[in-house]
Structure formats: C-alpha cells, structure tokens
Design a protein around this nucleic acid. Sequence first.
DNA 1: AGTCAGCCTCAAAGCGCTTTGGATGATGAG
DNA 2: CTCATCATCCAAAGCGCTTTGAGGCTGACT
Lengths: 350, 350
Amino acid sequence: MNLKELAAHLGLSQTTVSRALNGYPEVSEATRKRVAHAAEQHNYSPNTRAKGLATGRAMAVGHVIPTSTRHEMVNPIFGDFISGAGETYAQNGYDMVLSMVEDGDQARVYRELKAKGTVDGLILHGPAAAEPRIGLLRELGLPFCVHGRSTNEQAPYSWVDVNNKSAFERATELLADLGHRRIALLNGLEAMDFARRRRAGFEAAMATRGLVADPALMRSEEMTETYGYDSAREMLALADAPTAFLVSSMIVAIGVRRAVEETGLALGADVSVITHDDDLSYLRNGGEVPLFTATRSSVREAGQIAAKLLLDQIANPGSPIRTQLLEAPLVLGTSTGPAPKVTAAPRAAE
Amino acid sequence: MNLKELAAHLGLSQTTVSRALNGYPEVSEATRKRVAHAAEQHNYSPNTRAKGLATGRAMAVGHVIPTSTRHEMVNPIFGDFISGAGETYAQNGYDMVLSMVEDGDQARVYRELKAKGTVDGLILHGPAAAEPRIGLLRELGLPFCVHGRSTNEQAPYSWVDVNNKSAFERATELLADLGHRRIALLNGLEAMDFARRRRAGFEAAMATRGLVADPALMRSEEMTETYGYDSAREMLALADAPTAFLVSSMIVAIGVRRAVEETGLALGADVSVITHDDDLSYLRNGGEVPLFTATRSSVREAGQIAAKLLLDQIANPGSPIRTQLLEAPLVLGTSTGPAPKVTAAPRAAE
DNA sequence: AGTCAGCCTCAAAGCGCTTTGGATGATGAG
DNA sequence: CTCATCATCCAAAGCGCTTTGAGGCTGACT
C-alpha cells in the first residue's frame, strides 16, 4: 500500500492524505481522522527512501566503528553506548546505521556517507589524541558528536565525555591517602584520547603527593582480561612490587583480581585495586556493595546524551555547538584498603 | 555533486554516466574510464535514497534488538556478532541498520520496517522457544535469518546456530567422566531457545550416566557476573554442595570463579567449571592455555555466516532456505579436574 | 550505393513522496 | 445578488536515480 493507492481508496488526492498524516493545518479534523484510520487499517507507512528523497533528510544517524586488522577487537562498551543512543533515536523517529570500517578507509567512508546522503549526522567513536576525522567531518559539513574528546583539536566541536583526568586523579589520591606508594597504572591504549587523560590525572596526583610514577608500573594496552592478568602477574613478581593498581576497565580489573588471588594475596588487604567502571549492563560492579572501588560513569547514559546533542544539532543547524562533561564519582568497594605495613609486598612462598 | 551535474560536466547524458558507473556493457571502455575518473575526482557517490527508490532495493539489512523495560540488558555477545555481520555487509555494499525495540512493539516495528522499505532483510536475534516473530516475518515476505533456532517452529526458515545440545551434553559427560556426581547448571534464561537446548543436553547426559539433575542445582537467569557469583556462593554452602558447574557464559563463569576462590576452594581441584565460550574479542578465555575448560564457538563467525545466508537469500529470492549448525568443540583448560574424594557428602547409589 | 548490424548515446518515464501554487465551494459582508 | 474570505482540497513539479525504447553513427556486407 502506497500513498497513491491509499489516496485512491479514500477518494482523496495524494496531497491531502500526505498533509493529513503530517499534521498540516489545511486539513479538516474530520478528514484527518478518516485518513489516519485508513492508514492504520492498511498499515501504511510512507516509504523512507521516497520521503527522504523528497525532504532531503535521511532520518538516520550513522555510527562508524573503527576496526583494525591488527586486532579484531570490538569495544566491549560499544553495546551499551549504542543501546542508550538507540533509545533516543527511536523516540525521535530516527534510524541508526552502523558501519564497521577499517582504519585506513575512514576518510573514504565519511566522504561516501556524506555523498550518498545515507545519514543526517554521525557519532564518532574512539577519538585519538590527534584526530583527523574531526576536521574532515567539519569540512564535509556533516553534523557530528564525538564520544570522547580529542586533545589536539582546538576549534569547537560537539562531544560527550567523562572527566577522565579528574576521575583518575581522585582515584590516585585515594590510593595515596591509604598509604600506597608503589601504584601501578594499567591504562588503555594511549593513542586513545581518554587513556591520555587518565594518565595525566594519574601523574598529576602522583606528583602532588610526591610519589614517583614508575615506568615499570605503567602499561598501555587493549583492555582485556588477560592484559590485566599478565600485567599484574608480572608486576607482583617484582622485587618492589606495587601495592595498588589503577585500572582502566572492569574487564582488566577482573584479570588483575585473578592474578592477585593466584599469587596468594588478598584483594583489598595486600593489594588494592581501583578501576574505571562503565556501568555495563552485563557486567555490574557487584551487587549492593561494589566489588571494586571504582570511578563510575554510565556509558549508556553517555550514549543517550550524545544522541540528544546530535539530534539537536541536526534540527537546529545554526545553533551553537554543545558539549557535555560527565563526572565519574568514586564509589567505594571492597577492593581497596590501607597499604600493607611492609615496604616490600609479601609474596607467596614459591 | 549529483548525477546530472556530473553528466553535464562530462558532456554526456545521465543515462550514459549511470551505465558507465554500473558496469553496463553498452558503454565503451574509454568513456567508462573517463566517467570513473571524473566521479572519483569529484568524489561522487550516487544518492542512496534516489538509487533505492529507482531500484526498489534498500541495500540495507536490519537487526532488531529486543530490549525490555524490565531488565535493560544489552546482550554482551551482541557487539561481536554485529561486527562479524558488518564485515560481510561492507564487503557486499550493504548498510546495517539497528533498531532497539521494546518487547511489546516487536510486531509493529517489523510491519513498519517492511512498509517503509528501510531494509531488504532482517537478522532475528534471541529467538525464544516459541517465537511469533518468525511467522510474522514469513507472512510479511521479508527475507530473514535467525541467530539461533526456535524449537516450536516447524516450517523451514533460515538460521545459524550453535549445536548447544550436543555441546552441553559432551561437557556434562566430561564432568561425569571425571567422577563428578553433583553437577550444577547455571543456565541462561530458559525462555530463550538456546538455553532450553543446553538444558536438554545437560539432562540427557546426566540421565545417560545415571546421575540426577537436582533442581536445587539448576538456575536460569540473565547471564551476569553477579548471577554466577551469587549462585555459586549459595550452592557451595549447601550440605551436599556441587563439585562441578556447567555454566552458560564466560561472564557467569568469572562470577563462579570469584565465589569458588572466596570460599577458599581451588578451581580445577575442589571445584570444576565448564563454561560456554563465545570467543568474544574482549574476553578471550585466557592465553595459550585456556583458563576455563569450555565449549567454544565464535559468535563473530556466526555473525558472518548469518549475514552471508541472508544476503544470498536476498539476491536469489527463489532459492531454497539454508541453515547452518556450528559445532562447539570442547577445549580443555585448567578449570576442570577429577572430582575430589568425598568424605562427608552422601554418595549417590552407583 | 544501399542496407543492416553493432555500438554508443540519449530523452523521458517512472520510483513514492512532499510541497508549491492554485482551484473549488461554502460563508458572510456589503 | 455580488464579491471577498476562508476552509478544503487538488494537479503537478520536483527530489536523484535507473531503465526503457529509440535514435545516430560506424563499418561491413550485399
């Protein structure tokens, strides 16, 4: 059933039917009712492509997910972010189109998305500290909102980000307050902007408290369970092992916990761990009492906000660019405690 | 830059340019080259909506993700599945559009997708044992492929699924072979078809080996870390505690491990655990040596296959329905071992 | 020279919708 | 009774593409 048929069926013109369905005032309430009813009856929905062609709007938002052949890693937070954003889109009648794109093809894909007119705007994922995509999108004139920020980008652009620096700063301070001196940082890939900011927060707090950020205790990798496990395993075997770990995700923290327990140490007593917690739906940080002490920020909420900012921008093209910084409060769990008395951490006999 | 402008610029008609770009034989090789070059130069890509209108094909595939207000849970395997499917779509020039849909709105959304013509086909996620969506889609005449199966559905339909039953059967047999008598099953939600099949496999093997599947040791819930932890915690506190757990996902298994270790027991010695492992990119099952003994099947691969089957179906509407059953081989890790010699617990009759 | 393939190119008709610029009655004022 | 006004409704022109049915131009064959 298309508009023409529906109009014929009703004995009206296409114009009138279209106006009736789109809420134009030139249609009497009686006709509108009649049209609406008939549309529902024949479950008519206007063809997206035709509508898009006529209006020039795609009523769709794109998410470009960078993938790389080197590590075929799907960001675990991706699902929750998408789910938050998708909710907002659905409420506003927008579709969401996803493209998985190889790192090298990025520029080409953005150009194409613009030329093909598939989407009215984009969400940018995983910005690097130096992020060429932002300039490209601005040049293309495609509205966009970044999940995260890009340090090297001066000109204003729309973004939603967690205050990573202050979160890791506070977390580090807590550890210092608990008497920890040897604190390890298991960071995400430091090509990513968020990881840089976290490191900056960590280093700032260490400096403030007069502690040294030992390069041997700092790593930067893709955030997996094994990364946490392997790193913690090795670091705990050092002569001057760390007594605390600051970790960039729950999944990594789980790996650290495994290493700690396997080493015969007690979490929260011999070794403290603070992690960032994205509040993933399938990986809650314990129940009533948080398992890990954590800096928490819901990535789902970030998705909702990013979508909202973007839709706003699409609806009011002239309006000023908006941004939003989310704080990540520190929640206390059972994984932190005072630094053990002994300077050198006691290790299980082996 | 649109077709008209490009044609004018080249001094050709729209027809010729279109044909040149779409590889029709009526265009001389020389003109084709010239056209292709100019297109690249001005980075022209045909407008998707216009093309779609003209051809009647959307060049897009939909994924409908069921969400429910009760538990706002995003399936953790979703990201990897999508990523596999997305790869296949990209290779074939298809877009992927995602819709998050409330359970109640399912039927409406499918009808709309059909009417609006947004997509040429659909992937169905998370089928229940009795799945009304399959019948609906068939009735709508929208090509689709199911990730998973639906037991109550007799008529043929396209699907990709893991052999859940045989996987859990083999896993249970292994545990039985190791001497375990009290085996717990931490299943996914048994409204889901895959969970039913796993249970069936478990029960079949238990029966074959003359063991009782104790209802007190069987649970069915959303697969989270806390679910694993809480369940294991409680079960291990029982007078006749289980010596082995069969678990439906890595995340749940991680929770079980936490409970086991907290109880002061050793994984692989006092308590054995086998889990299903979807081979998620961000949650590998250990490194060289698998951490958990597991039935493994890559959900990413499932995504690729499902996409392929669907695209085939779209391209050749008349062709017979295809399906694919993936086996999930048992990989041995360090989480399983012989059942401990029982001292106090009552032994089941031989 | 005439004709006919064969090759290349084109104008124009859609695809299903929105939207502009009227047309048509009905209504009330003059 | 006439005329402007208003509320309704409509025909037709796009939106950017594909595709049909035809037409021009070669060169080769009769």
